[in-house]
Amino acid sequence: MKVTIHYCTGCNWLLRAGWYAQELLSTFGESLEQVALAPSHGGHFEVVIEADGESEALWERKRDGGFPEIKELKRRVRDRLDPQRDLGHLDRQTP
């Protein structure tokens, strides 16, 4: 399974995209085949997951209203990668 993070270079979103990539790799490690950063333009920010030759946009800034919280992005990746996987404190409700 591959994840590609498209980010707008004109908006200076490289650091944000890199941080998301680092967080996904820290959590899922070798369960992910690849996390790639793809420069884009025009305010484009999108996280796409590819598995078995099919691609799906997990998050799109304009469609989903801004940038994802990391716990939500990790949940969406987990739900496609290994739905039974426990994400520890990310899966627990806070009071």
Rank of each mutant, 00 (worst) to 15 (best):
T27H: 05
Q34H: 05
S55K: 15
W59D: 06
R61E: 06
L58Q: 03
I5K: 00
E50Q: 10
G10N: 14
E60I: 09
I5C: 08
H41Y: 15
R76A: 08
R76T: 03
Q22M: 08
L81W: 11
A51C: 08
G29I: 01
Q84E: 14
E46L: 10
L58M: 08
E30D: 12
K62E: 09
E60R: 15
Y7G: 01
E30H: 12
V47Y: 00
Q93W: 11
R16Q: 12
A21T: 09
L58E: 04
L15T: 10
G29R: 06
P39A: 03
T4A: 15
N12Q: 08
L15E: 15
W59Q: 05
G10T: 08
H41G: 11
F45D: 00
T94F: 05
A57T: 14
G88Y: 14
K2I: 10
I70R: 02
I49N: 02
D91G: 13
E56L: 13
V77Q: 05
M1E: 02
E50K: 06
V48T: 12
G18H: 07
H41Q: 12
T9H: 12
P83Y: 01
R61W: 12
Q84S: 15
H44P: 00
R75D: 14
H41D: 14
E46C: 13
R76E: 15
V77S: 03
A17W: 03
G88F: 14
G65L: 07
D79S: 13
E33T: 10
W13K: 13
S40I: 09
W13Y: 06
Y7H: 00
Y7E: 01
D91S: 07
A38Q: 15
S40F: 00
K2R: 13
R63S: 10
T4Q: 11
S55M: 08
R75A: 10
K74Y: 04
H44Y: 05
N12Y: 00
R63N: 12
G42R: 08
A21E: 12
G88C: 07
L24I: 04
L32V: 08
G88T: 05
H41P: 00
P68N: 06
V77E: 14
H44S: 04
S40G: 13
P95R: 11
R63D: 09
L81S: 09
R80E: 01
G43S: 10
L37Y: 03
E23L: 10
C11G: 05
